[in-house]
Design a protein around this nucleic acid. Sequence first.
DNA 1: GTAAGCGGTAACCGAAAGGAAACTATGGGA
DNA 2: TCCCATAGTTTCCTTTCGGTTACCGCTTAC
Lengths: 112, 112
Amino acid sequence: MQEATCPQERIAMLDTFEALGGKWKLPILRYLSNRPDEQNTFKKMQRELGAISAKVLTQELKELETNQLITRTVLPTKPVMVAYQVTQHGLTVIPLTDQIVQWGLNHRTELR
Amino acid sequence: MQEATCPQERIAMLDTFEALGGKWKLPILRYLSNRPDEQNTFKKMQRELGAISAKVLTQELKELETNQLITRTVLPTKPVMVAYQVTQHGLTVIPLTDQIVQWGLNHRTELR
DNA sequence: GTAAGCGGTAACCGAAAGGAAACTATGGGA
DNA sequence: TCCCATAGTTTCCTTTCGGTTACCGCTTAC
């Protein structure tokens, strides 16, 4: 009897969703990859990303850092600032998000 | 001042998640795309996909049909059977899922 | 008649996700 | 002294997601 679904594929997909799942991780990675040379501080990101709360932003940034997709740097400024940057590994997500965007555009035209 | 995030990209991503989101839609599409010539009936899929409940399977299939990613055919058998097939449009999801699988594999090796 | 297989539907539940508001600690300026 | 800004943390709340169980109508086999 044939295998229902290839288990290692399922596991790989689950790995991806675990690292990139959640409402804001992909937007955050796209945001940071568009601003590789700026001081992407917490408050600046919160202002510019849209309607994300501090709690969720903290959470998503932590998980991205755990998965080595971004780095966190504390700056020696007077009110301490923290800057986030996308890593080399984090940049590998961009082609994937590009394809997600492309599929969404195509899907919309497909439905008329 | 620069745009925080390109709004049309965000919308396209949300479109994709709306059509493909949920625990089982991608596995179902991969399952069906691997069996284009079989009678993929409800019960057979439920048995072979793993731990999916009838309620959720019904739900996911409905949404996939709404988005024209699969077709639903009632067969003229004595106990009525229903067969599902992936559409041409549904097949366009496969390259995307391939990349999701690939990224998951790569991510695992990246973390050692 | 009764049980089994088909393709569902309806009611209920618990867990998780995400958002709002208040709060922390630090330091600078009026 | 009070207020502002930084970067969070904590508590509470609502919504959503997926799963369990029971049930329906239909047909065939025992």
